[in-house]
Simulated assay, not measured.
Amino acid sequence: MGRLTTHVLDTALGRPGQGIPVSVFRLEAGGERRLLASMLTNADGRCDAPLLEGEAFAAGRYELVFDTTAYFREAPGGAELPDPPFVGEVVLRFGIAEAGQHYHVPLLVSPWSYSTYRGS
């Protein structure tokens, strides 16, 4: 059974990104975004359940939105952020070609940069 999962790693402080809101949208043919799920990352920087799985997980175009603003503003030992922050919401667009597979989309983030990849 296919599923979509994620986790967030704070590369500035070297720890999981806890309490970060994550939303997943399906990108429709006309360019519209349809919200499918919203969750918070746990103490390990992961969501407690897959973002999508089973029949809800289909081939198509998706968008993950990570709202890191509050996390970095409130992080003990974190950087003082300008207003607006350089990295606030991180928006990742990607395609699902085979819905029977596990797609894991990690986010490595700091107040000044981010990167992602298809994990396992």
Results as ranks from 00 to 15, higher is better:
V91T: 12
L92R: 01
G19L: 08
T69F: 05
G100L: 06
P111T: 02
P21T: 06
T41C: 04
M1P: 10
R73C: 11
P50L: 02
T68P: 02
A29V: 13
T6P: 00
T6Y: 01
D67N: 07
L81F: 05
P85E: 03
Y62T: 00
A12M: 14
S115H: 14
A49K: 15
L9H: 11
L92Q: 04
A97Q: 14
E32K: 13
G54H: 02
L13Q: 06
P84M: 10
E63Y: 09
D83T: 13
T116H: 03
R15Q: 12
Y114L: 07
L92D: 00
I20Q: 01
E28S: 14
G30L: 09
T116L: 02
A12F: 12
R15P: 04
G95Y: 09
P85V: 03
M39R: 14
G31I: 05
M1R: 12
E55W: 13
A75G: 03
L108Y: 11
A37Q: 10
P21V: 05
V65Q: 05
E53M: 11
R3N: 13
D67S: 09
R46E: 11
Y71I: 02
H102R: 11
L92I: 08
P82R: 12
S23P: 03
H7V: 09
V90G: 04
R34S: 12
F72C: 00
L108G: 12
G19E: 07
V90Q: 01
E53V: 10
N42G: 06
G88L: 02
L35R: 06
R118M: 14
D67T: 06
E89W: 08
L108D: 09
E32T: 13
R33F: 06
